[in-house]
Every structure is written in structure tokens, then in C-alpha cells.
């Protein structure tokens, strides 16, 4: 990991204008991604993790969705200001995404060779045989056995793990600086998941690509990430180095989440739980978004007197100022 900053997100707000009101999917988040670093973005469904990724890629569904404010600085340029054509050029070469489901992100009626070379064509001005060689090279770089034979197969002829590696191969084919992985392993078996995570790490070591890993699984965070941002209802409520976050979680939500996950190395009779549900994003509580579920809120938190804002509790460890004083579950 180096000090070079690849991506800097400042006060990003992505809102959706719907009939029932304004849905604040992402509501003021800040983070940085360094070269060769893996940033984990953890949160429940609807917490805004995927919308953060879409915002960075300039793919917020229009016209309902809109980036209301904020900056996404990539190589000193603000991606929010870019036109659709400029963003298209950045996607793939600069920032690339690995989708959740390899079955739907590959075209079922086109063979792997075509799907790989159509991306490679954009990058290299070469004839077909040499593009094919590059495609075979890519497949072998993602550890697909017998790539010369596999390159002519169709997605349905491959297993889930292999398909996910093909998707991985496509996303690294134009050597991007940043890889956004949106739960890429949820549909895979545990042993295949491990192979895939190792592959991502190897690619990172070789190329220094910065990875934003979107997940709801703290196990993946512990395995893969250098730094973690915990999202809740459109806000980042805690951000720290991975070891610091697991050792010293400060926000009651992070604490409760970490405790509520069953642990293979530990015996418990009953897991502690967080009561309630995440709030409706069209109608978030004023002040702290977590206050309805806060297990032991301070008086100011309960009343919603404190605005959300991050404070640094120790170097590199940022927590939302409201809940830092609230207690945890008993």
C-alpha cells in the first residue's frame, strides 16, 4: 500500500426523487482509496453501498437518481462533472466493476473468446490472432485450467467459480487503477470463494490496483481489507483500519454487528441481536439516523439533537459524533 491517493470522495450525496419523496440513498459520505489498498464497504441492503459504487462509475439510474452534491476526485478531476461519454472512457480503463452475479453479467449466447476480445479491442489495436493470445493469457492469469480450450466455451459450460473468474478477467483486461467489487462471491461456494479472494489479492499485488470491496460479510472484510467503512442508511458511521475496527469498534451499530455474527472459533448459546429494522430512506429520522435502533442512546441522541458528522477518535479511526457516546447492547 502506498500513500498515493487514487480516489477521493467528498461529501457525496446521491438522492432519488420518487413519488413518495426524496430517497437519500447516499447522504454525505467521505472516503479515500490509496494505491494497492482494499477498502471494505460494509452495510446492510439499502445502506447505500451499491449506490456509492454506481455514483463513482457515473451510472446512477436516471432520471430519478441524481448526485446532489459532492466531489469524486480521480487523478485530480471531478467525476461528478464529467459527461456520459467521458465517463464511458474512464469505465474499464480507469475504474472497473466486478458484478455480484457472474451468470447474469456474462452474455449467455456469446462465447468467452468474443466477450474477452471485444473489451481487448478497445485497448489494443491488433489483429485477431494476437487478441486471442491476449485473451488466453488473461484466462490463464485468473487460473482457468486449459485456457486454450476454455476460451471457446460458452458461459453455461463453466462452473460458477470459473464464470466469476472470467468476469474478473474481463474487468482487469484493460488494467484499471480501481476495481469495485460488489459482493462478487455471494453466489459461490466457500472453497471457491477462497480461491477467488486469493486471486483478487494476487492481482492486486501484481498491479497495485485499488479495490473497493462491497460486502455485508465481516468475514470477507477480515480476510481481504486494509480499511473498512461501515455504512448505515446512506451514511458512513465508522471508518478505520481493519484491525483497529475489529479491536476497538466505537459505534454501537458496528459493535452490535460484530457481536451478532456467529463465530466458528467460539461457543455461544445465544447471539446478541440488534432489534428493529433499518429506517425508510425516504423518511430518515432527523439528527442521527441510527437513533431509533440505538440500544442505549444518550439523551441527545434520543432527541435527535446531534447532527451527523465524523470525528477522529484516534489516528485514522473516524466515528459518527452522535453515537460515539451511546452505550452498547447489554
Amino acid at each position: 500500500m502506498s500513500e498515493e491517493i487514487l480516489l477521493k470522495v467528498e461529501n457525496l450525496r446521491t438522492h432519488f426523487h420518487t413519488k413518495t419523496g426524496i430517497v437519500k440513498a447516499v447522504d454525505g459520505i467521505d472516503f479515500e482509496l490509496h494505491k494497492g489498498e482494499t477498502l471494505g464497504v460494509v452495510g446492510e441492503s439499502g445502506s447505500g453501498k451499491s449506490m456509492t459504487a454506481w455514483s463513482i462509475l457515473g451510472m446512477v439510474p436516471k432520471p430519478a437518481g441524481r448526485i446532489e452534491s459532492g466531489k469524486i476526485l480521480y487523478h485530480g478531476e471531478d467525476l461528478v462533472e464529467k459527461s456520459d461519454d467521458e465517463m464511458r472512457a474512464i469505465r474499464g480503463t480507469g475504474i472497473c466493476m466486478v458484478m455480484q452475479d457472474p451468470l447474469t453479467s456474462l452474455n449467455p449466447v456469446i462465447n468467452i473468446k468474443k466477450q474477452l476480445t471485444e473489451t481487448l479491442e478497445l485497448e489494443y489495436d491488433e489483429d485477431k490472432p494476437s487478441l486471442l493470445q491476449r485473451a488466453i493469457g488473461l484466462l490463464s492469469s485468473v487460473n482457468i485450467p486449459a485456457p486454450e480450450m476454455r476460451v471457446t466455451s460458452f458461459p453455461h459450460e463453466m462452473s460458477g467459480g470459473m464464470r466469476q473468474r472470467v468476469v474478473g478477467a474481463i474487468s482487469i483486461s484493460r488494467s484499471p487503477d480501481i476495481l469495485i467489487a460488489d459482493e462478487p462471491t455471494t453466489s459461490l461456494d466457500v472453497t471457491i470463494q477462497l480461491q477467488y479472494l486469493k486471486l483478487l489479492k494476487d492481482i492486486q499485488e501484481e498491479t497495485g490496483v485499488g479495490i473497493i470491496f462491497i460486502t455485508h460479510d465481516f468475514g470477507i472484510v477480515a480476510k481481504m481489507c486494509d480499511r473498512v467503512a461501515v455504512m448505515y442508511a446512506g451514511h458512513i458511521i465508522e471508518q478505520a483500519d481493519v484491525v483497529e475496527l475489529f479491536d476497538n469498534p466505537k459505534h454501537p451499530y458496528t459493535k452490535a454487528l460484530l457481536k451478532s455474527v456467529p463465530d466458528l472459533d467460539d461457543d455461544v448459546d445465544m447471539l446478541p441481536t440488534i432489534e428493529g429494522q433499518p429506517p425508510d430512506l425516504a423518511n430518515t429520522p432527523s439528527g442521527c439516523v441510527f437513533r431509533d435502533r440505538c440500544p442505549n442512546p444518550s439523551d441527545d441522541c434520543k432527541e435527535g439533537n446531534i447532527e451527523m458528522a465524523m470525528i477522529e477518535v484516534s489516528p485514522g479511526h473516524w466515528v459518527d459524533q452522535c453515537c460515539v457516546n451511546c452505550g452498547e447492547i447489554d
Partner: peptide, 24 residues
């Protein structure tokens, strides 16, 4: 053992010894 070693760790300091099975 391979299944257990593929299980994700509960803490970043508790990385398991990896026993990656070859093939599928």
C-alpha cells in the same frame, strides 16, 4: 479441514492456515 480453512476469519488477526483444494 479444507472447508474449515476456507471459512472466513472472525478477526483480521486470526487468519486460518489456508488449505486450498486444487480443482473442482
Amino acid at each position: 479441514r479444507a472447508l474449515i480453512s476456507a471459512a472466513l476469519p472472525s478477526h483480521p488477526r486470526l487468519q486460518r492456515d489456508e488449505l486450498v483444494l486444487v480443482g473442482e
